[in-house]
Design a protein around this nucleic acid. Structure first.
Lengths: 147, 147
DNA sequence: TATTGTTATACTCTATAACTATA
DNA sequence: TATAGTTATAGAGTATAACAATA
């Protein structure tokens, strides 16, 4: 187990292994959710607003790596449900300023707990070393997406 | 950085971080694909057939973590494109035996190369240590899904 | 009766193109 | 003209329910 001197081949292999692994995890996560009233996509948008604070629709679309029309739909649903608020931008009336509401934040907290029922159960079947691997992997996955 | 004595809290936090990370990676991967003639879902089904050999529609659906009707559609497209073959099961005529064709295998190889144009480029921006983290994470992610 | 797979139907997610309102 | 966002439209992916064929 030495550091590789030929990273190219392992890199290609890694690409072919990583993609199906994450794709299947997303599928399983979608099915294992308990509260189906808010979808994974909607939860993710809310989580971004909660983490990074109020932002415009375009910024949220970029953060979520979707096109603006896709985000328009998500926002409309969340706003109607009272989970996200929208206000006019103070100086640019084209823009909307989106923010998570208290109700949204509460649902987010509940969802984390619900998610734990399955995912945490899965995670507890792993060894501490395996969980440590996943904890280390999260920021690397983020880096991969953001760059 | 000692091994944790209270795994519950970190486990919940990990669940909340891991899900959005993999969900966004799947989105970005979908967009970064070069050959759009075959979708990610279809590629994943082909890859499973290539890795594990011929199997029934039900087995393939289970392996991909989708319901049988969802797999029916995928198979129909792949069969029409000549990428997957279907034969009658020798003893049970209800079952279809699915296998990847030579054309399918070739497309799979090409796709891996195409995927590398983006993902390998991303991976080469990481340190060797970060790539090592992802390599270690892949089997753990698989374990998470399979159990 | 039980199992395998398909068909029918519907909803979510996502995209591109065209449009409106504002800068 | 350029930008922010929405509307219109279409296609992929997925599910559940009902069905047909076979065991």
């Amino acid at each position: 187990m030495t550091t590789s001197l030929t990273p190219d081949a392992p890199t290609g292999e890694l690409a072919g292994l990583l993609r199906p692994a994450v794709q299947r995890l997303v599928r399983v996560l979608r099915n294992q959710r308990v509260d189906m009233s808010v979808t994974l996509t909607q939860m993710s948008a809310m989580a971004t607003l909660a983490q990074h604070g109020p932002m415009s629709a375009g910024e949220l679309a970029a953060a979520e790596h979707v096109q603006p029309p896709s985000m328009t739909k998500v926002i409309a649903i969340l706003e109607e449900a009272g989970l996200v608020s929208r206000e006019s931008h103070p100086t640019d009336r084209r823009q909307a300023v989106l923010a998570i509401t208290d109700a949204g934040r509460q649902l987010l907290d509940e969802e984390v707990q619900q998610r734990d029922r399955w995912l945490a159960a899965q995670l507890t079947t792993l060894s501490e070393a395996e969980r440590a691997v996943l904890r280390k992997a999260v920021p690397v996955l983020d880096k991969l997406v953001v760059q």
